[in-house]
């Protein structure tokens, strides 16, 4: 082996067409941001899958912990009144 460590890891986000948000497509290694963009183009948009790309160093992402997922998301669990289907509306009422 010539090099002893991998290049940094980048997360790739692709906007598939104008009007949609960027979506996580995968990851890749590259020495710098410009190379990461070029590699992302070659790897994730070979079939016109995108009109815009973001590359983000993986180390810049802070993620919630899977071990805490129940307690972390629990506050939303007992609030069904945040959904429109919670409310009973008489038959025939329109535009509501």
């Amino acid at each position: 082996m010539t090099e002893s460590t991998d290049w940094p890891l980048w997360e790739v986000f692709v906007r598939s067409r104008r009007g949609l948000s960027h979506t996580h497509a995968g990851s890749l290694h590259a020495p710098d941001a410009q190379m990461a963009l070029r590699n992302a183009r070659d790897l994730y948009t070979r079939r016109n899958e995108g009109v815009s790309l973001w590359v983000v160093p993986s180390t810049a992402i802070t993620a919630s912990s899977p071990d805490e997922k129940d307690s972390f998301f629990e506050p939303a669990g007992d609030k069904p009144y945040r959904h429109p289907t919670f409310y009973e509306i008489p038959e025939g009422v329109k535009h509501l």
Binding site: S4, T5, D6, W7, P8, L9, P31, D32, A33, P57, S58, T59, A60, I61, A63
Partner: peptide, 16 residues
Amino acid sequence: HTAQATAGPAADTAPL
């Protein structure tokens, strides 16, 4: 700056 700080070889896959 964030990108620079993490572009070194130490920025492996570790944090995830």
